[in-house]
Amino acid sequence: MSTVEEHMNQSVTTARPDQTLEEGAQLMVERKVGATVILTQGVVVGIVSERDVMKAVARGMVPWNTKLEDLMTRDPVCASPSMDVHEAIGIMLDHGFRHLPVVDNGKLVGIVSARHLLRAAEEPAATRAEAQ
């Protein structure tokens, strides 16, 4: 069985809670990612996704006057590198998350997205389709 470590991206986009929504959006656009992990002194304290940005904008938050801590999802569910992909998929499906930070001994070591796991899921689906 494959583990989260095999599918995660080790290059994680991170920001501080006191950075602005505009800065967070700039990071996500520049790095071409759908979420940024919020760290305080190396510890994961939150996550901001595209959907969180939409929600903030829809509620009238001003991007250059709003801090990421005002819109982030606090204390997000995290995966461990050794977690079975099966379990990570279950967490995403149960909670509707598209990203899980990967933490090892309290330290952020990667991020796994539904898009990463989609690639893993494509192959068996394609194999079954060919077999039919």
């Binding site: 998929i89 499906l93 539904a114 898009r115 796991l117 899921a121 068996p124």
Partner: peptide, 17 residues
């Protein structure tokens, strides 16, 4: 949406396991 597609493919993947 990729969200719906991911859900469907991952559920399919889960069933295959």
């Amino acid at each position: 949406s990729i969200r719906d597609l991911v859900d469907a493919l991952l559920e399919d993947y889960e069933r295959s396991l």
